[in-house]
Design a protein around this nucleic acid. Structure first.
Lengths: 340, 340
DNA sequence: ACGTTCATTGCAAACGATTGCAAGATTCCT
DNA sequence: AGGAATCTTGCAATCGTTTGCAATGAACGT
């Protein structure tokens, strides 16, 4: 009375299924794996029963036995500024593409955000957990050395970030230094002579962007100062305002480390009554969707996020297959709009 | 010669470790689990060896034996508009908070994005995989019925979305209908008489926002039309432009389903030479960071994303503990800025 | 009709950690 | 000193799937 459904035996394990089909568990395993060693008739019967009962093999057991899990770990180290990436559009967009790309190749994605300062062991712990076949690190943060260390003993790892001469871990990323140069050159080409870099030069990617801008400034004989700014929108807002107050009139070109900062900067400039691009030229970095919607629309350095995700996954797959791989450096692209 | 490191025996399994420590594997297991049944001396010795060799127990094996994995599945169904969520700021921010909240409770997060149209079995497959202890569904998309079905037989599931009278699955979400009402009331209070709703009324959350606006419009005797718009920025841009062209002058208040749409709408209005809020009032939804940076800043309906993530995780934990739980409806909040 | 080859299938041992049970070692009490 | 009570520890089964090996039976050739 209490159970009105047809009493279909619950089939939870491959053994349950084997009992119903009248074969051994081994045969069921082979049949469901699509191996050729099973008689077609038998396979069809087994598949039919599996479908009827909605049976799915236990991934944990399978993973344990085969010593592979079908899961790729994606880890975001929150080094400098814990708050930063919590909603960082760039990282999140990259993550979205990664999820799609991994899914397309039959892998699942295990996401972990870690605070290296509180947990020195973050990377080894993830790798050693036995839960993942490989790992993608999103952002080197301030953990370059630790990543290098791990790379020596662990092959299936690819990192999003900046490429440094002679480094040992496989990285995918934009040529930040070139991007920085393009940005500064554009500012100078549109008439700026007193440049400022807005952002945190701690993380390597940003340091490289700054270095690139320095290259251009030095070569073309204009000044460039760094205005240290946190990357989280809540803190950055007033920091930028303070910077502008301190250097009113002394700068006429700003290179913001990210579009998010550029957008905040635009607001701050407007509040001070400075016209963009007439009084101050402004170039961002990333080419996030927001860059097209600011007033005026942002001139910025584009990173091809989708290509980055594809590259990360492809290199990782090759490493999982045992290959050694080179790093992949993507070219940045200057997107000219109206802010410079 | 080739190996200069001290030849530390590689200890990969609990059995390796047991051999070195001169005890049985069982004792090692108990020691590392921190159980009280082990002699303090023994435990310390085992812990020391484990630390020295960087040993970490295999999670797969542990999971298999204990029948729990310490992993929570987070699934984003891409129902209507596959492109939509690929970089949807709202969902991604929610995901970020979820990751932190789950980590804080000792769980890992397995992320999966699925296209229900191509894979009718998406939810059962995830649950049945044996890889996750529970599941959080981000967005009901057009899968309300399937989720209901699953909820009948599977307890540890919580869904972000809209609450419907008498539904059977546990949901956390903003009171969208109330939010819609607040938005419309604000438009009307600031002088609008011919309202338009910008967005897709297919997904439940948006349908509810529209319904709420209708409630207010009807009660206060003003008109309201729906302007169907996709949510992905690339498509929405021109759709909005077309809508504005078609209804030029006929509307003086716009309620956008999300801040992203509102921001695009602002750009389109500017291009048509319409002043905000003087010619047209505009209210968004979500209160994303972008809302503060548009020109003029957006009046919008705030969703408390952090509270949402906390609620999702807390309810899920209680369900994992066997409890039944009620849904959690969060109050929306009108943020008055300058666009209405 | 008999030996060979091949296609299917079953058996049982892994994979690595956990845990109930029971045995051995200590401690404590009278 | 003898026995009970309490701590520690080892043994071995178990979680569910995979896979090498061997066994079975059918098909085939001469």
């Amino acid at each position: 009375m209490s159970d009105t459904k047809p009493s279909r035996t619950v089939v939870r394990t491959i053994t349950d299924l084997a009992r119903i089909a009248g074969v051994s568990p081994g045969t069921v395993s082979r049949a469901l794996a699509g191996k050729s060693l099973v008689n077609t008739k038998t396979r069809e019967k087994i598949e039919a029963i599996a479908r009827e009962h909605g049976f799915r093999p236990n991934q944990m057991a399978s993973g344990l036995r085969r010593q592979k899990t079908g899961v790729i770990g994606v880890v975001i180290p929150l080094g400098h500024d814990t708050r930063q990436q919590i909603s960082d559009t760039f990282f999140m967009t990259l993550l979205g593409f990664l999820a799609d790309e991994l899914t397309a190749h039959g892998y699942d994605l295990m996401l972990r955000r870690v605070v290296p300062d509180e947990d020195a062991d973050w990377l080894d712990r993830f790798i050693g957990s036995g839960m993942i076949d490989g790992v993608i690190v999103i952002g080197q943060s301030d953990q370059f050395e630790r990543i290098e260390d791990v790379a020596d003993g662990y092959n299936p790892m690819v990192v999003w970030g900046n490429h440094n001469e002679g480094q040992r871990h496989c990285v995918v990323g934009t040529d930040n230094r070139l991007g920085g140069r393009l940005a500064a050159e554009r500012l100078i080409a549109t008439g700026a002579r007193h440049l400022a870099f807005l952002g945190d030069t701690g993380p390597m990617e940003f340091a490289a962007r700054f270095a690139g801008a320095q290259d251009a400034a030095r070569r073309l004989g204009v000044s460039l100062i760094a205005l240290p700014t946190h990357l989280s929108p809540d803190r950055a807002g007033e920091e930028i305002a303070r910077h502008l107050a301190a250097h009113a009139g002394a700068i006429d070109g700003i290179f913001a480390a990210t579009d998010t900062l550029a957008s905040l900067c635009l607001t701050a400039l407007r509040e001070r009554g400075l016209a963009v691009p007439d009084d101050v030229r402004l170039v961002g970095f990333d080419d996030l969707p927001i860059a097209r919607q600011t007033v005026p629309p942002l001139t910025t350095i584009r990173q091809d996020i989708a290509a980055g995700a594809r590259g990360l996954v492809q290199l990782l797959l090759r490493r999982l297959a045992g290959e050694e791989t080179e790093s992949l450096i993507l070219p940045p692209q200057l997107m000219i709009r109206q802010s410079a």
